[in-house]
Design a protein around this nucleic acid. Structure first.
Lengths: 114, 114
DNA sequence: TTTACATATACCCATATACGTATATTAACA
DNA sequence: TGTTAATATACGTATATGGGTATATGTAAA
């Protein structure tokens, strides 16, 4: 029950839904997530930390970047995300994020270019 | 998006999930809900008020009782409740509530008996 | 029209949450 | 080994949330 409640708590924040929808499609590093969302690094990192602590995402370092990806062990979460994606047109912010996701590699290149 | 976030906020509270799962099965008055949940009347009423204000349930007076029932216009909510019910055995509290619901009429009879 | 009962609300408190800013950490590289 | 860059965390603050107790509201019955 605790996990169910936590799943919904996680989903009650716009930034976290945006992160989860992106991660549902692709494993991404923090700077890509910041770039796509247009949100500050501490804000994104803190939400990712919460998602990680609750066991909804996992992370893995690769060179200088830390990549996050969905932990698929939470069926309510996964089902819910799929449910949202099926109706993505009702949520323009999410649809816009996904469009921007197509250019996510740009952001990591930018990071490397600096 | 606002409505989506509100849907998950509503679902992040144990008392409200219990109420919604009960109301998914049957239209119930406040004293029945208090009886089945074993929770105080102000607590139940306040959560019902929140659900009503957000448009997730509706109410209707019948004699001295006020009956609550699900507003079926929120597909994410309904789908999610169904999803929970499909896995009800993972959530013993909810399963217990449903068993107790079979005797809900007892509670309204008790009210009238006073 | 007074009383009783079902339900709603107000008020207070404790706790949780989100955010921005500043700073710490860690790995890569010069 | 010192510096840079990516990411994480600490701290302070403002706000939201849930619960209990007391009380208000409104309908029903006496």
């Amino acid at each position: 029950m605790e996990k169910l409640l936590n799943t919904f708590k996680v989903l009650s924040d716009e930034t976290r839904i945006r992160l989860l929808i992106l991660l549902y499609h692709k494993r991404l590093c923090v700077c890509e997530l910041c770039g796509v969302l247009g949100e500050s690094q501490p804000k994104v990192s803190k939400h990712l930390a919460k998602l990680r602590d609750m066991g909804f995402v996992k992370d893995e370092r690769k060179e200088q970047f830390i990549f996050y990806y969905l932990n698929m062990n939470n069926s309510v979460l996964i089902t819910t995300l799929q449910n949202i994606i099926c109706n993505i047109d009702e949520f323009p912010i999410l649809a816009k994020d996904l469009k921007k996701l197509e250019t996510a590699e740009e952001f990591i290149k930018e990071c490397k270019a600096k």
